[in-house]
Design a protein around this nucleic acid. Structure first.
Length: 328
DNA sequence: AACCAGTACAACCGCATCCTA
DNA sequence: ATAGGATGCGGTTGTACTGGT
């Protein structure tokens, strides 16, 4: 039992608006206003359109001062930062960009800006198995990956993480692994709280040419609470033996977990270990991550990084964390 | 010229929330 | 307090357009 439709779909016109329809709607609203009732409006004008369709047409195309296309670099950056901060809250993002509509920004993001900023994604064959494919008994569509799991990693969250790293000046957060794979240490084998998935990340930040710190970047993205415990007040080092350091790491870990999973369930696990999301257990094992520049196999044995540090293969493999191939 | 694949964008759909009687 | 209608929102779809072969 769904709710009753807002209009009779058999009797309303659908599809692209004609210039005549546009003119009717525009003239009426400019003269009379919407009257506070979109449902009744098409009947008053004599349009065979659904009220929702009229509202959308007015808001997105007919109302004054609407800008289309031609997004500036400043707008790109603002959209990027806002998306990193709040995700796909298009109406809020649109409110910060005068003349732009949520629909316009959403389309722009999905078709162009995302590719421009985050790069091209791999083919669907490399993606994680969707819920609808895992649970073939219930034919329920998967509204989003892991929609039935409280530990779902959302596409938005990972894109936001990636954007944050982009904002920090790293062209590709995953190429960062070429430099320091400890950045993504296996969360399931963490033995103490001074190890956490972002370990090493800040080392890279500190050694990058970026003029802004990760703190500034996170702050600008309004990720309150995602404060790096690796940075002391001098911005260079931290006393990782102190209890305050441990608690700040735990807090950081929790917030990071929340960003990834949409909740802070990591708090409920022992020693700050990260739980494995149910939806990430099903991965097409035959489809290795060959799209990765060098693959990850080379990280399965101990190796020495450019900075001279020896790393053990305790690092998490990306597919464990659902990051392989952006696996979402 | 015809076909095809990829892209961009307008519009639709369904759900969540708000509002009001 | 609550039920039902209106509205807002984000995800998705349909289609026109474009460029390559």
């Amino acid at each position: 039992m769904g709710r009753a439709p807002c209009c009779d779909k058999a009797s309303v016109k659908r599809g692209p608006w004609s210039p005549e329809e546009d003119a009717k709607l525009k003239a009426y609203i400019e003269e009379q206003g919407t009257g506070g009732n979109w449902i009744a409006l098409p009947h008053k004008i004599g349009l065979k359109r659904c009220g929702k369709s009229c509202r959308l047409r007015w808001l997105n195309y007919l109302r004054p001062n609407i800008k289309h296309g031609g997004f500036s670099e400043d707008e790109d950056e603002l959209i990027c930062r806002l998306y990193a901060s709040i995700g796909s809250r298009w109406s809020i993002i649109a409110a910060q960009l005068p003349g732009r509509t949520d629909n316009d920004i959403k389309n722009y993001w999905n078709t162009r800006l995302k590719k421009k900023l985050l790069g091209k994604r791999p083919q669907p064959s490399r993606r994680l198995i969707q819920n609808s494919e895992i649970n073939t008994e219930s034919n329920k569509p998967a509204a989003s990956l892991g929609s039935t799991s409280s530990q779902a990693i959302s596409t938005s969250a990972l894109e936001r993480m990636q954007l944050l790293m982009q904002l920090q000046g790293l062209n590709n957060p995953f190429s960062y692994l070429d430099i320091n794979p400890l950045a993504w240490q296996n969360p399931y084998t963490l033995q103490n709280k001074t190890n956490y998935p972002m370990q090493g990340f800040e080392h890279e930040i500190l050694n990058s040419n970026s003029t802004t710190s990760i703190e500034e970047s996170l702050d600008s993205a309004n990720l309150i609470g995602l404060q790096s415990p690796m940075l002391a007040s001098d911005g260079v080092s931290a006393d990782n033996s102190s209890s305050s350091f441990s608690s700040s790491v735990a807090g950081f870990q929790s917030t990071f977990c929340e960003l990834l999973y949409g909740n802070n369930s990591c708090n409920n696990t022992q020693e700050g270990n990260f739980p494995e999301p149910d939806n990430l257990k099903e991965i097409n094992q035959d489809d290795s991550i060959s799209w990765w520049p060098n693959g990850l196999d080379e990280y399965a044995s101990p190796f020495t990084c450019d900075n001279g540090v020896n790393y053990q293969p305790d690092m998490m493999l990306l597919q464990d964390y659902g990051l392989s191939g952006y696996g979402l």
